[in-house]
Every structure is written in C-alpha cells, then in structure tokens.
Design a protein around this nucleic acid. Structure first.
Lengths: 237, 237, 237, 237
DNA sequence: CATGAATGAGTCTTCATTCAT
DNA sequence: AATGAATGAAGACTCATTCAT
C-alpha cells in the first residue's frame, strides 16, 4: 500500500523545508518560526479535542499542550473559532492529500485506484482513534456551524466525485450497465465513514483488516468481475 | 412499511393516558405532570442540540425552549450532564424501540426482517436531520465521555447483534456458505451510519429512497438470491 | 448539681403539657400540633447548624431533618431569617431558663449561687459541642445582623447582671473592699465563654471538670475566703 | 508596651519594598504585583466578613471592595473556599507574629512576658471590632469545616503552649507549688477569648483597659507575688 | 395543615480575550 | 514574538420562596 503521502500545501502558505528557510532573505526565518508555532497549536488542538472533547477544549489546554503561554492563540489565530476552523481545514487538507497521493500512485486501472482509496481510508495515518475522534467532533458541531459544514462539504464532495469517476469508468468499461455508479460511490463512502464510527465507539471490536474486507464485500457485490471478497484481498478480474 | 412503532417504556415509568390519570389515586397525577415536564425538557434539549449544537446548548436555551424557568433542569435532572445523559438514553430507547417494533412486524422471513430494518433506519421518525444531528453531536463527545460511550455501545451492540442473527440465518438457510455473516452485518450497519452522515452534511443531496437503494445494493451483492437492487425495491427470491 | 431545669416559656406561647392539650376546646389541639411542628423545625435547625454550619444550613436540609416537606418552613415561619431568629431565641431562652433555675435551687448563699452558675455553665444540657457550635455560629453572624445582636445582648446582659449582683453581695458582705465586682463578673463570664471555645475548637482537649476548676481558680483568686481552687471543688469558707 | 510588631513573612514570599522591586530581574516585579493583588483581595475579604458577615460575603463584594474585576478571585485563589482559608491563615499568621514579637521584646522575666501577652491580646492592631468579628465568623464555621478547624487549632495550641511555658516557669521559680500551670494558662487564654466576645457583642460596654484589668485580676489571684490587680497595672513583685 | 413542583434572583466559576511588559 | 495578569461576559447551579393541589 501507499506510504503516507505528503500533505497538500495549505492555503497558499506552502511549508518550506528547513534548508530553504536558511537561505531566504532575513525575516523569512522568523516567518517560519511563526508558522511552526501555528502548527504546534493546531496539533495541540487536535490532541485536546481527541482527549477532552470539543466542549472541554479550552485555549488554556491548547496553549499548555503546545508548551506556550495563555494569550498565544489569540495572537496567532485572532480567535478560538478561527483556530478551530484552521484545525479542521488542516485535517481536511491532510486527509485529501493522503488519498489523492494514494490514487496517484495506484496507476490507471480503475479497480486498483478504488482499492487504493479503500486502503487509504483505513491507513493508520488517517484512520486512528485520535483523528477519527476529532473528525466526529467536528461533524457533531457541523450542523450548527456553517463554516465547518462548508469545509466538510468541500472535502467530501471532492472525495465523492473522485470515487464516482472511478465507478463510472468501471461501469462503462467493465460492462456493469445495470449498476448506478452514483449509488456505488455513495455506498463506498458511507461504508468507510460508518466503519470509522466503529473504531470510535468500539475500538476493541474494530480491526483494520475487517474494515477493508467489508468494503471489498461491497465492491465484490457491485463489481463482481473486478473485486472478490475472498480472503480479504482485492484483485482485478 | 411499519408505522412509527411505540417507544419502549422508559425506566419503569410508563406514561399513562390522561383518562387513566384522573382515576388514579392522588399524587399520581402530580407525578405524571412531573414526568411530562421531564420529557418536555428532554425534547427541548434535542431541539437545542440540533439547532445550536452541543457546545451552544445552554440550560437557559433548554428551559426557554421548554417554556419553563431557569432553575428547572437542576430540579428535575440534578445537573446538565445528567440531562444530557438522559437525553441520549431517551434517543437510544426510542431508536431501539423503533427498529425492534419494525422487525417484530416483519414476520419470520429473514429477508423481510432485514428489509424492515433498512426501512426503519431511514424512516422519518428516526432519520431526520434534527435527530441525526443530535446523534452525531453525542458521538462527537463520546470519545471523551465514558458515560455516552457506554450508552452508545449498549444500543449499538444490541442492534448489531440483531442484524447479525438475521444474516446468520440467511447464510445458513439461504445457502451462502462463502459469506461471513459478521462482515455482512457490520457492513449493513456501517452503511446506514455513513448514509446518515450524508443527510447531516449534505442534506440537499441526501434522499431517503437513494439511501435505501444503496443498502439494497449492498444486500443484493451479498445475498443475491434474496435481494435485488433493481428499481429500489427489495424482494424475497 | 441541678437537674436540667425547665426552659423558660417562649414569648407568650407557653408550652402546654400533653394532658392539658387534650382537655382544651377543639382547635387548641390543632394549635398544639402546629407548635410541635415549629419546635421540630427549630431543633432540626440547631442540628443542621451544628452539623453543616451556618452557611450550609438550607431550608431543604432543615425540613428534611424534621421529616417534613420543602415548603414547610415558609409556612410556619414566614422566612428563613425568621426561623433563624426564633432558633436563636429558643436557644437563649433555654440557656437563661437553665441557669436561672440553677441559681434558684442554690439558695441564698452568694458563694453557693455563684458555684451553681459555674456548674450550670458547663452542664451537658447547655454545654455540649452541638449547642456551642450553634452559639458560635450565631455569634459569628451577630456583628452583621442587628437582630441576632439584640437577642444575644439581652440574654447576655441579664446573665451578667445576675452574676454582678452576686459578686457585689460577696464584696459587701464578705469584706472584699478592694475588689471591683464588675470586673469580677466580667471575668467570670468571659472565662466561661472562652472555655466554651475550647470545647468547640479542641474537643479532645476539653474536659468539663477542668473547665470548672479553671473558673474556681479565678474565683479563689478573687474571693479567697469563699472559694478554694484545691481538688476541683468549690466550698464556702 | 510593644509597638505593633512586624508580621511574620507569609509562606516564603516576603513582601519586597518598591525600590527593591525595580532593581530585581524582570519578572519579579510582576510577581510582586501579583502578590500585592492577592493581599488586596485578602484584605477586602476581611473587610467584607466584618461588614457583611460570612454568609453575605460574596466574591462580587470582595472583588469590588478590592477595586478589581469579577473573575479575579478564581484567578488568584482558584476558589472562594481557598480564598477564605488563606484569609484565615493570613489572620492567624498576623496574630501569631504579633504576640511573638511582643513576647520577644519583653525580655526574660516571666511576669513581664505574661504581661506582654496580655497587652498584645488587647492591642488595637489585633483587638478591634473588625478583626474580632472575622475571628468569630471563622470560629462559627470551624465546627463544620475541618480546614478552618485545623488552622485555628494549630495557632491556638502554639499560643497556649507559649503561655503554659511561662506559667510553668512562674510556678517553678516563683514558688507556686500549689498552682496548676496548665489551668492557669487555659484560664488566661479563655479569659482573653471571652473578653473579645464582649467587644464583639457589646462594643459600647467594652473597654480595653477594663479587659486588661480583668486579666490581671486573674493573674493576681493565681500569682499574687508577681501580679497585683490594683490600679489596673501589672508589676513584678 | 401539608405537599412538592416550579420559579428566578443571586453566586460561583470558567474562559475567551485584551494589553502592558 | 511571547508572556501572563487582568477583565468581564456568560454559564451552571443553589436555594428561598410561592402556590396549586
């Protein structure tokens, strides 16, 4: 499977490598330090949400978790809300970057691409209890916060569109005229999200291989000539 | 499909009809009024979580939503946390009661029972944006609140076990020796939970019939002789 | 020493004996029941203050302690404040009645009367940790509550005046021309109050006999021909 | 008599003079300001308890009295309870520091030392209606608050032990074989506490000189060759 | 006479945010 | 760029009091 692929650059502020930084004109180094602090805060936020939940995530906990002082968040993010939005964006960017890279590495074969997506979905980099807890925390608040909803929607629709395109290709080139590619795509995505919930609520019961197997069970049912549910492995027909 | 079935009685305090109340011994009427107030508060809590989210659900909003005074929640539930737990329990009881009734009405045929479960899952009584928002709000906090987790887990495992039993029956009596009933059950549940997320995040895009169709697409793939994905209808072979 | 003497009648509502009550005209019996409830509430108040302190004495605790319902106090006493004042008055009346009875029983000899007062002061009926805690609780609030202050003052000055009168008699008839009776009386009262504090703060260290001995040490110093500090016993010269 | 002696430094954070502050390393000045704020709050608490009583001392009153904002107490003391405990500790430290300094200044003579203690007891610095009201407020709550009790007990037993030691010395070196030094010490302390109560309850009637006279009346009775009650003055024999 | 559900003012406490250093 | 003391608005909770039954 794909190694953890690089995360997509964040909103026009592409992360620069250390070596690059040192050769920049003065002032850029300082900017990099600032960026590093921002990142530390975002990561501390993720940790806090995962550990304490959304409701008990305070700026005090975040700044303490980042090993910094109280007022720091307002300094770097203007407001708590902005920090939260940036955290969600960060998470979404990471996730999107991850599956995009996986798909890119999978080559041209649609079945292989779909398999890559399934594998990415349950890869420890994005599918671990901490991150899933944070995703669910944001989803839990999404209904009442249009900004969150927008970020989730954008990332979701992009993901769905990618899957749908592959499904369409399979339907057309694989001779599945009776299959609705839209339904298939919806199904696969829903399956993945629902299996994440298992990891959140019953981590003891969840297992990565089983989750993958269930997805392939679905795909084997829909695209029987391209997937098989046997022995937990995918195979192009 | 099943009409909204009656919710299981909560903790031994079955709601009594008005006519019954008047003929009871004195004191019972008062107790019933108290219970009615409790219920009003729970419903106001659900409304508030759905509308304002978990974080912005304050006791002031809840009591105002219930048309009652400020201190009322602490009077009936001791603490905000207790109210929240009882709200989740209420939700879980309602949900469990709902699908149980649906299954009971479906008769003995396993395919019909499974279809009933799928239908119940997306019935407007339990599957509407308000309730789903509340479910996701609780799931979002579950990781950091063992009490929520316990309630979710209990309800979840009961639901899963019911589905698993039906799948097992299908596997054994339907001649699906190569199918893992456990995987099938996990898949169906995950699918349902994931499709709920669609309704939460992209309500415009969600549609009940499509959700049902996707589930049947899965079931048709797994149990092809008992389900067919055609025209969005289930049919026993 | 004097047996616990009867408590002085309370402000125009003299307690009636049970037998008396039954022979009264109808309606009086009901009044007696009401009076009994009042008393139960006052006693529950004393218990609560002793156990939970002034700050944590709530009407809920009081009514529960009395085995009655929530609203009962406002029914019988109009307000919490009134209950508290009546409790203090009750305490003061009991205390005053107690030492008055003790003095009355002591006869005419001034030394014997003074001894009786000292003995009464440390008699378990009035000098036990519960009641002392309540006295100190009221004293602690007295400064800021003129009503409490007034009740305390009235009782205090009466007590002091009684002691002063005896001291004066001793000075005049006992040949203690160089002794200021006022100072002697003040000293004895202060001594008693201060020794009560010992029982409150260091109950393990406090002992009734020692307290009595200390008072007699004082009296023996002031009126050497009438009191002796030896062996913890008072004796008229 | 001793001039108001300096209070013992509190918990290793000795107050620094302004001039010192400016020359310290950065950060210390800030810490000093913080300490000053703490002290202001403690003093505002004492004022409030004295004026409004324990029950009506709210954090709003305290912070207003200190000229600071609402949330300030929780910032500096975590909780109201902690503030109260620190206030009591402050009071106890001040009191202990005061009499200790007085005794130290009195020299070696036991009678002079005892006189110094009596004088300190009624010195306006510690014996004024405000502070006594606060002491009684804490004593009133002590029964039900082990923490208060512990602080009171510690300070009390230290004070008592000091007095007892002096009494013992007097007994042994002064030839008072028939006097129980323990009783004498208990008596003197109780007398002082009881006389404080007079100032609390009947301030009009209380007078410092008389209080002192009463104590000497006691001491003259117990140690006649070292104290005389005449003319309200103490004198070594 | 008594009950206990309901009220709502008042408190403590939390916490995002500000700002002098 | 970072700190952390201070602010003050907002929220949970308590509890005396009321009143229909």
């Amino acid at each position: 499977m794909a190694e953890a692929p690089r995360v997509a650059a964040k909103r026009g502020r592409p992360p620069k490598s250390q070596s690059q930084l040192r050769t920049q004109r003065p002032g850029t180094q300082r900017a990099a330090a600032k960026e590093a602090t921002r990142l530390k805060l975002i990561e501390a936020t993720i940790d806090s949400i995962a550990r304490s939940g959304f409701a008990d995530t305070t700026l005090a906990k975040v700044s303490e978790g980042a090993g910094l002082s109280r007022g720091i968040v307002n300094f770097h993010f203007t407001s708590k809300d902005a920090l939260l939005v940036e955290t969600l964006t960060h998470l979404a960017d990471e996730y999107t970057g991850f599956w995009r890279a996986a798909v890119a590495e999978a080559g041209a074969d649609p079945a292989a691409r779909l398999t890559a997506i399934v594998d990415a979905e349950f890869h420890p980099t994005v599918c671990n209890r901490k991150k899933i807890a944070v995703w669910y925390a944001f989803w839990g608040e999404a209904r009442s916060r249009p900004t969150y909803l927008a970020v989730c929607e954008r990332q979701d629709s992009e993901h769905l569109e990618a899957i749908r395109a592959i499904c369409r290709e399979l339907v057309e080139t694989g001779g599945y005229a009776d299959i609705d590619a839209e339904d298939a795509a919806n199904g696969l995505m829903a399956l993945a999200d629902g299996l994440w919930l298992d990891q959140l609520l019953t981590p003891a019961h969840f297992d990565r291989a089983a989750a993958r197997r269930v997805c392939l069970l679905f795909l084997a049912g829909v695209f029987p000539r391209h997937f098989t549910a046997k022995r937990g492995a995918a195979s192009a027909a």
